[in-house]
């Protein structure tokens, strides 16, 4: 088993200490940090996504896999500065809208986007529109991804879009929305650019939004 395969397996199995150890060993053996992303971390998380889609993995398995991936990326990210081989697919500001504290869905989407090569700025839960505006401005985000689990809070997605428009940022950033009560027609009705039915769909939506920008 190659060291890439070892890391990939550790992530899929959700074994964070192993992922850390393999990553450190790989670096010690002269593997360049940027090589570990396309050869181990990204394919591992793609496999996790596939297993989730096919109902082989559920939230606990996905979360421990994400934690294992993070154990590797926490070591690697500081070493990547200036490394041209790792290109971002885009920057996504994500969060659960104001008044809503549900974050499992948002976390899974953020993790899947990150594994797909996006830079993630996760604003957490109960996020007011002005915080989104500030983050878009600070990070030059390509996409805003907002989540809501309640019909009472999904209206705040519109408030985010309005706030981006008021700040003069609406033309610079695409907005995608998702969450249990959110539908494609709702997304359209509030002027969002995209809708993700689930985490996998969200990745495709983000990719297409960035490509179309």
């Amino acid at each position: 088993m190659s060291i890439f395969d070892e890391l990939q397996q550790a992530i899929i199995d959700g074994k964070a200490p192993v992922a850390k150890e393999v990553t450190e060993r790989a670096l010690g053996e002269g593997v360049r940090p940027a090589e570990l992303f396309p050869n181990a971390i990204v394919p591992a998380m793609n496999e996790v996504g596939r297993r989730m889609r096919d109902c082989e993995f559920f939230i606990p398995e996905v979360l421990i896999a994400a934690r294992a991936a993070r154990a590797a990326t926490d070591i690697l990210r500081p070493l990547l500065v200036g490394d041209e081989e790792v290109r971002s697919a885009g920057t996504v500001v994500c969060g659960t809208v104001k008044g809503d504290l549900h974050d499992i869905g948002k976390n899974i989407v953020a993790m899947m986007l990150e594994s797909a090569g996006f830079q993630i700025v996760d604003l957490g839960v109960d996020v007011p529109p002005e915080k989104v505006v500030a983050a878009v401005r600070e990070h030059g985000a390509n996409v805003v991804a907002m989540s809501a689990l309640l019909t009472t809070t999904m209206v705040n997605m519109k408030a985010v879009i309005d706030a981006l428009a008021a700040a003069g940022l609406r033309d610079q950033v695409k907005v995608m929305v998702g969450g249990a009560p959110v539908t494609e027609s709702w997304a359209q009705s509030i002027g969002a650019d995209g809708y993700g039915k689930d985490a996998s769909a969200a990745v495709e939506t983000a990719r297409s939004l960035v490509a179309a920008a």
């Binding site: 809503d100 504290l101 009472t152 809070t153």
Partner: peptide, 14 residues
């Protein structure tokens, strides 16, 4: 617990 004027109280997970 976070209380809101007109929606359900919610657990403050943080």
């Amino acid at each position: 617990i976070k209380f809101f004027p007109d929606q359900p109280p919610a657990i403050d997970e943080e």
